[in-house]
Design a protein around this nucleic acid. Sequence first.
DNA 1: AGTCTCACTTGAACGCGTTCAAGAACTGCC
DNA 2: GGCAGTTCTTGAACGCGTTCAAGTGAGACT
Lengths: 232, 232
Amino acid sequence: MTEQSVPTTAAGEPATARGEQTRQLIVDTAMRLFRERGYARTTMRAIAQEAGVAVGNAYYYFGSKEHLIQEFYARAQTEHRAAAGPVLTRESDLAARLAGVMHAGIDVLTPSHSFAASFFKTAAEPTSPLSPFSAESSGPREAAIALFAEALEGSTARVDPELRPHLPELLWLAYMGVVLYWVYDRSPGQTRTRQLIDGAVPLVDRLVGLSRLRVLRPVTRQVLDLIRTLRH
Amino acid sequence: MTEQSVPTTAAGEPATARGEQTRQLIVDTAMRLFRERGYARTTMRAIAQEAGVAVGNAYYYFGSKEHLIQEFYARAQTEHRAAAGPVLTRESDLAARLAGVMHAGIDVLTPSHSFAASFFKTAAEPTSPLSPFSAESSGPREAAIALFAEALEGSTARVDPELRPHLPELLWLAYMGVVLYWVYDRSPGQTRTRQLIDGAVPLVDRLVGLSRLRVLRPVTRQVLDLIRTLRH
DNA sequence: AGTCTCACTTGAACGCGTTCAAGAACTGCC
DNA sequence: GGCAGTTCTTGAACGCGTTCAAGTGAGACT
């Protein structure tokens, strides 16, 4: 049998109430310790001990220490949507909506800046399930792209119709750039990242507007062609 | 004494011929094993054993396994400059020069794709000395930026004078984007990365040309202002 | 030649993430 | 109650990167 036998339950998905409870306990403990001590200085032994379980038990629910981070992602994404809610009901200007969504994302991440940076390297590895481009992250990723689609749809902005369908993903990509900058941002309170958002969003807004200009048509098309080529 | 005592030699800089020789032996062995087995599967014990030295001896010259990678960077940078030489003497068109420099960089990296990806995560960590933005990497980084300055200066392209002084660094940043894409590139022979270069370079070339257009002046200035703000 | 100095070398030991064979606890069925 | 089959739990053990107290060796000075 070279085939993998079908497991009755996927790793990390408890089948009983007891399992669900243990899993939650481990996650909560891990998140607390990550925040308190940072990612690298939190050992799996410490998590297990504080949670009152055996080390091996944590590995029953999470394939690795990295997998605990995925839980962090999922939580952050949910919080991000919630935090972006008000601005999306209030504003109708694209620039304001984009800035609102991006600031909301950074708001959610800010308390975790110190340790988020330390596990960022794991997420950056192409083969890692934590990569924002990986199949395993498709849930949070698509939720995030949907958030930008919402920001776009609810706005009064007029957009080149060729560009429009690709824009949510491009905006998400730009947001990933902001997050990348945020990770590297050493300024107190990451104020630089706020400046980046406030500086880049009007720029993006302006470019989106310009995309309907005749002179820029070829450029827009060139960009879209490139994107189509690079995606399988 | 809270002050650090001044070491007679910096870590990794041997003072004797014997030391120099050992250091080279370790580097060469490490590079060979990285290529043969990949970064993660090459243990420090294996490197030491194959080089015929004790484990601790490797740590006398290199503060960590990661520091061995810096050696790889330095070598790649030197090779990159050499590989870009011909095209820089031959071509005068900016697009051709840029494409030449970028392709040369990927040419140099290609044999290492499999293991470069596996240690990329280390380089991505902001606090890592391996980060392309870190002080420790300033040598290779500035050499790379200089390479793009050379590509620009030797070209016939006319550039907005306000933009010009910032352009080499922006081009390097774009190149970092290409390398990032390359790391994630799973297509056979990384042909997608080649397409990215061939698609993005004319685009960049066009944008640089357009930067002198009256309509786009404000945008150009907005971009430059943002860059100025984000840099300390 | 003796001895001082300092660059270099050693390998056992530490703490970490991770694995796994063994067992405990729970559930459904008779 | 008794049995079977899962689900969950355990902790010792493995291999890894890294540290460090203890050595070795080669040149400089007397």
